[in-house]
Structures are given as C-alpha cells and as structure tokens.
Write a protein that binds this DNA or RNA. Structure first.
Length: 506
RNA sequence: GGCGCUAUCGUCUAGGGGUUAGGACGUGAGAUUCUCAAUCUUAAAACACGGGUUCGAUUCCCGUUAGCGCUACCA
C-alpha cells in the first residue's frame, strides 16, 4: 500500500480503446485495477478511449462492457453509469483537451509546429538510415509564439508540441521501482494534431488528472510513454500519480499473445465454456503470487484480501492454457450442478442433440448426463463430443473406425459379441444396469473372455468406441433416453446391438 | 540503430548473502477403473553467461547474451 494515498482516496481506472474484443492482457489490467480499488476501498472507473476515430466502434464498446460484466469486474463510475467526474468517453471531452492545450500554449509550455507531416516523415527516415535517433529537430521551437498564433489565426494548420525541459525525467513505478529517462530521447511530442484532434499521450494525462486518478495501473507497453506524460503533469503543475506497469502476456513462442495463439479474447473463453471465476483466478496468477507463493485457488473475495501491487512481478508471463483448464475443472467441480447444466444446455442445442425448452423429464435426464461427464472435461464446450455416443449411434462407422480395428479383430471379439447380442435380444423391456451386469457375467463364463477382451468389444457394440464413461450409469441413461422426445431418437441397447450385429462380419 | 524493461524447473511462480532452492500446471511412474478421462499418491525437472563485492553469491553491483516494448500528427 502506498502511504501517500489514504485508503478512501484511491482512484484507479481501466481505459480500453473500443477497437476490438477485450483480450486477456487487458482483462488482467482491468482485474488488477479492480482488485486494487476493492482492496483499498477506492473507486474503480471505466473510461473509453476513443480518440482514434478510425478504429473505434460503438459495438466494441458494448462488447467490452459485456465482457467486463461477465468477469464480474463492475466499475463505480463509467460511461454507462455516470459519476461526478465525467463524461467517461474521450470523444465527449474534446473541449477540455482543447482548453488545456490553449493554456499550455499561452503559458509557453507548448508551441505551435507548422512542419509538414511528410517532411517529418522524411526526416525520420533519414535519421534512421544514418543510424541516428529519429527525434524531432525542434525547428518550430524557435518560432516567435505571437507570430505562430497569428499564422494559425490566418488559417494555417499547426500541431501543438509540448516543450520538454532540458533535464532527465524521473518517476516511480510500483512494480519496476525508480525509472529515469533522458530528456534527449523524448523530444517535444505532438499533443494536438494539426487537425485539432488531440493524441493519446496527451488526453490520457488530462483525463487521469481530471478524474483524480491516484494510481495508473496499465500494461508495460506504456512504460516508454510515461516520461512524456510525466512532463505533461509537470507542465500543468499537477501531482504525478503512482504508476504500476504490468508485464506483457506472451504466447508459447514467447511472442506477444495474439490471435494466432488461439483463444485470446474474453469472449472466446466464455464461448468455450471457461467459467469466469476460473479465468479471474488464472489471470490473477499471471504476474502476481500471494505471500508464501504456495496457494493457487482464490475466489474474487480472497483475491481482494490478498492482493497487493508490491507483489506483482515485472517479468513477462507465458499464457498456459493447461493451467487455465486445471482451474476450470476445479471450479466446475465447485459449482452447483444446476448452474453447470444451465451453462451446458446451449452447447447441446447447437449440436442439435436437444431442442430448446426441454420438458421436465428430459431436463432431469440431461442433468444426469452432465453429472456423469462434467467432472472430466477441461471446458463445457467439450461436453457434446463426450456425450455424442448417447445421442448418435452408427454401427457401420464404429466397425469402420481405425481405432476400433484392434478390438474387433481380436480373437475373442466375435464370440463375445455373438454371445452378448443373443442375450440382449432375449431380454424384455428396458435393460437395467443389474441385468446388464448379469448378462456380461454370463458372456464371461460362456466365452472365457475377461477384462479388456470382454469389455472392449461390448463397449464398442454399445457406444461405438472402446473407451468412455462407466456402464453402471451409462446403460440406464441410454435406456431412458430412448423414451424421450429429442431431435433424433436415442437408440436403446437392444437396437444398438441389433444394428451392430447386422453390420458386423468378423 | 537509439532508449527502456525483463531474466529461478518446459510453463506460472515462492524465496533470498550460507536453504535438501518451496508450491502449482504439465510430464513420467504407481493406485483406482472393463476402458478413456477425471481423481489420489509419487518421481524427475530450475537459479542464462562473464566479471566484480564478499570468508561465501542463485540472491547485491557491472557487463554480455537473449526476449519483449517504445522510438508516429496509433492507442
């Protein structure tokens, strides 16, 4: 905890650009801001940074808000909620940026620059080619301010540049410690484009200061921008906030996590059936560890209690899907069965295994399938594939499947299948799991097959695969399913055996 | 190119001037099960390299290397 900021005054913000889906890096930044605010009884603000008009879209803002809410990271002030220091969308704050820029101009802390963008680009390229730093020459720095103002009044378009003082810029970062940049590498940055549109590094300072942000917690891709921003705070005579720059999240190849690494947006994880508490828990462990470093599972409340920015690691972290899955399995097991059933339903509807709005009997039956399969999946999206052998049965495909050839070509397979089929056909009514067991025992005695050589062929006949869930629970589910109204009728055991026997020629 | 940030098992990390360098995921083995998955038990697995400082360095300092970021009238 920072001694400079009494608990009640802590104000932090998450400030995404609505230019795409919320991805894991941003979500982790949002989470750490949220945790820090909650921990200190502070205020958590959502601000939309839409100054890049070409890339910003309203639909992304809605998506962002939906993703954040799904994660449970509710904010206290924001564009949808309002608050005392709004508006919370940068496109609604243009007058403010304009006013402060004029003030800086009048006070001589900034100056007008009439250099052409093409010329600057040319200069830049030349500097790079000659292995020099591509810094602004400072040409317009020498212009007479009064003269510049006059030129602007006459319609000449000019950008506004901040005057960087001739001394090193220092600031403190909670995760990186003291950081120092030479003023020579900053060079007078443009704060307002010649079009009148202010740039990010400028508006972020105006907004953070106006919104009384005490701790700027964001990705470390902004670390190199921070000296510009600190210079701006100082030019405006404002208190510089505390910074905490969070490390980058990388993919398995140690490159910055991106779409080609697979699922990276929060929406992706939700769609694949990752529970929000699992994702929150995983994200918290990416770059942070509790005191002692031996505990892995935390509810959001527990995280709030344990969290501290001082324990955030500065080094980049590789995203590990397997560990996320492990946490997801943990939270699936912790969840109520009703919740998992509710979350699983849409996947089965999409697979056309069930129709929307199940009747009570079907729902009850469905819940038993989920109870049987959910404990062993990484995510909910895997469920329909695991349950497919209940809903669909294709004897010919099972016989043709390469992974079954070893089982079906085994010495005892034909006799086991024959003996099993004969007995199942002799049964009347639904096959109970006790009757099933008795039949298997009789087949065992008759054929002398036991263990895998007995069960693998039987399992293949019933499910089309030689591995799967326990028969004890599976047999009743299949039998009862055959009486339900479903998009495609579930075949009972006898029907399966019949179809298999008809198609099977040893 | 310049500047900055980073460096403990494959991965996420704890730790810290003297430790059997701890935990977790994953991996291997065993248990359980007809089987697969899950689960439980268990094992293997790390201080990037080179110089200092020190009685002693993985830990502190400096370099090297590597990775990443910034270097825009993008955010």
């Amino acid at each position: 905890m920072s001694p400079d900021f009494p608990a009640s005054t802590v104000r932090v913000r998450f400030a995404p650009s609505p230019t795409g889906h919320l991805h894991v890096g941003n979500a982790r930044t949002a989470l750490f801001n949220w945790l820090f605010a909650r921990k200190h009884g502070g205020t958590y603000i959502l601000r939309i940074e839409d100054t890049d008009v070409e890339r910003s879209e309203a639909r992304y803002e809605d998506q962002l808000i939906a993703d954040l809410k799904w994660l449970g990271l509710e904010w206290d002030e924001g564009p949808d909620k309002g608050g005392p220091l709004g508006p919370y969308r940068q496109s609604d704050r243009m007058q403010l940026y304009h006013d402060y820029a004029e003030r800086l101009l009048i006070e001589g802390k900034a100056y007008l620059c009439f250099c052409k963008a093409e010329d600057l680009e040319e200069e830049r390229k030349r500097a790079l080619a000659e292995h020099r730093s591509p810094l602004y020459s400072g040409k317009c720095r020498a212009l007479d301010p009064a003269e510049s103002l006059k030129r602007r009044a006459h319609g000449e378009a000019g950008a506004i540049r901040l005057l960087i003082p001739e001394r090193p810029i220092r600031f403190h970062d909670i995760v990186h410690g003291d950081v120092e940049f030479s003023n020579e590498v900053v060079s007078d940055p443009i704060i307002v484009r010649s079009s009148g549109m202010p740039v990010y590094n400028y508006v972020v300072v105006i907004d953070d200061a106006e919104m009384k942000i005490t701790h700027v917690i964001r990705g470390d891709d902004h670390l190199s921008n921070t000296p510009k921003q600190v210079a701006l705070y100082e030019a405006l005579g404002w208190k510089v906030p505390e910074f905490a720059h969070l490390s980058t999240i990388l993919g398995g190849d140690r490159e910055r996590l991106s779409k080609r690494h697979g699922a990276t947006s929060i929406a992706n994880f939700r769609e694949m059936g990752i529970l929000p508490e699992a994702l929150i828990n995983y994200l918290a462990l990416l770059g942070w560890a509790p005191t002692g470093g031996t505990r892995e599972t935390f509810t959001p409340e527990e995280l709030t209690k344990e969290f501290s920015l001082e324990r955030v690691t500065p080094s980049p972290a590789v995203f590990d899907m397997q560990k996320l899955y492990w946490l997801n399995r943990h939270y699936i097991a912790q969840s109520t069965p009703e919740r998992i059933v509710g979350l699983a339903l849409p996947y089965f509807e999409a697979a056309r295994f069930i129709a929307p709005r199940l009747d009570a009997a079907s729902l009850n039956w469905f819940a038993r399938i989920i109870a049987l399969l959910a404990p062993s999946v990484d995510n909910l999206e895997e469920l329909p594939a695991r349950a497919a052998m209940i809903f669909r049965y294709d004897a010919k495909a099972a016989i043709a499947a390469p992974e079954n050839t070893e089982v079906l070509k085994s010495e005892k397979a034909p006799t086991v299948i024959g003996a099993f089929a004969r007995r199942v056909n002799a049964e009347n009514g639904a096959l109970s799991s006790d009757r099933f067991k008795a039949i298997v025992n009789e087949v065992k005695t008759e054929t002398g097959a036991k263990g895998k050589e007995l069960f693998h062929p039987i399992r293949t006949v019933i499910t089309g695969a030689h591995s799967g869930p326990e028969f004890d629970k599976l047999i009743p589910i299949i039998e009862e399913g055959s009486h339900l109204q479903l998009p495609a009728r579930v075949l009972n055991v006898r029907e399966r055996v019949g179809q298999f026997a008809a198609a099977f020629t040893p």
